[in-house]
Amino acid sequence: MKKYVADWIVTENKRINHDHFLLKVALNESLPEMMPGQFVQIKIADSPNTFLRRPISIHYADPLNNEIGLLIQLVGAGTRKLAELRKNSRLNLVFPLGNGFSLPDKSPSIKRFLLIGGGAGVAPLYFLGSALLRLGHTPVFLIGAKTAEDLLLIEEYEQLGAVHLTTEDGKVGEKGFVTNHSLLKTNSFDGIYTCGPLPMMQAVAAYAKSFNYPCEVSLENRMACGIGACLCCVENTVSGNRCICTEGPVMNIEQLTWQI
């Protein structure tokens, strides 16, 4: 897939909660094809200390308005700069990067997929859920967070399919972690996709393995170039160290060497 570098214009920058924001940016021309699970590398302007680009997964792509959405967690100085961006600011992106989730064929038999997200890891699952729906399949969301405050844009996910929730204090949804949710005991699926904190994804991978579900995880290894040149973001796989910026960020759990 061809990669591009270009300036985008901020169309909206909306705070979601105390440490997340939704940044919408538009391109002056038609969007190239983008796959759910792919990411962009954002240049942080006028910030010499945080000079590396920030890799952010694509939350949605809207080809009608040449717009993409980026659901971003405030982590440090780089993301703080992005949170401060006003409408009409310019933002330089390298895009689209990475492989994306593997999508099922469009087929007459409807398949049911479980999409498990935690924290800002829910971002690419919205794009993925929309794509699955378009292919005639059923996405079921299972989203976990520490507290109700930390659940992001749930009403938008509800428009794509059933949404099941967990919070650690149990105030919303079931109490505990996503892998303890009763849904997993009573339902079966044609496959699982997950994105979120590493311990969560490893627990999901262990669950998927025990039920022999095909399972893909989206990794977040620290990266520099984003295009497979620097070899910094490697994940140890069954075929050696592989860059997650080109051979990921999405990997099938069969490729990984996780001790689960």
Binding site: F51, N221, L231, C232, V234, N241
Partner: peptide, 21 residues
């Protein structure tokens, strides 16, 4: 090459330890 993590950003720079993969 070396095990992950191999890179960290520092003030106006970055440290790498790719190890000639």
């Amino acid at each position: 090459g070396n095990p992950y993590p191999r890179m960290v950003e520092t003030a106006s720079g970055m440290l790498n330890a790719v190890g000639l993969q």
